[in-house]
Design a protein around this nucleic acid. Structure first.
Lengths: 105, 105
DNA sequence: ACGATACTTAAGCTCATGCTTCACCAACCG
DNA sequence: CGGTTGGTGAAGCATGAGCTTAAGTATCGT
């Protein structure tokens, strides 16, 4: 999931998909690389759950799946919250240390 | 940044750092690999801005930096919001399509 | 039916990543 | 002062990620 977002090209594809569904070729157009490469990136995105695709006729249409995005967002925000709480507590901790200020081991 | 979070070991280190600052060895302890490897991961985390470190005596102490975490969170949430809005609009679009339902090119 | 289009699949190539080992320095412990 | 602890740095290696080419399949347009 983070693995999938780690690549700039893949992020660009996600960016593009934010603005609506797209075919593989449309996705590939702005991306100085072969269709093959794009398909491989797409596979990674699909594997990570970020993108869902569906083939109609010979055209594969790609769509963002917000569920995965939401999961990533949650992972980050949980950790950030955890750390920030810890950080608040640090104030109290330091104050306490100030009082002790050099007690034996 | 996403690159940095892409590695499971690195995520575990971040996880550990959520619960408070740690020395390099403390960070390495639960991680079935050599200190050297951990230091290299640490360099990646530091390079991405996720972690700040500071050396006192011979001990390097590591801390999470929430700013980077916040940036990542924002990136995701912006895109998710964008897509979700687009998704809402899809309802209207489809309704309109239903009315047209087969007009000439 | 025939050619163009839209992808798909496999193979191979190259460079980055993740790891290890080994030698090393610096600080603390007695 | 000498040994141990905590970390650093450079090589080197194995794997995998990202790309390409090339050949193939299935639709679509006419």
């Amino acid at each position: 999931m983070f693995q999938a977002l780690a690549d700039p090209n893949r992020r660009q594809m996600v960016q593009r998909l934010c603005e609506g569904p797209a075919s593989v070729s449309e996705l590939a157009a702005p991306l100085a690389m072969t269709l093959s490469a794009v398909v491989q990136h797409l596979a990674v995105l699909e594997g990570s759950g970020l993108v869902r695709t569906q083939k109609i006729g010979r055209v594969r249409t790609c769509q963002l799946d917000t569920q995965a995005l939401r999961a990533a967002e949650r992972w980050i925000s949980e950790r950030r919250a955890l750390w920030e709480r810890r950080f608040d507590r640090l104030g109290a901790f330091l104050a306490e240390q100030d009082l002790k200020e050099g007690d034996g081991a």
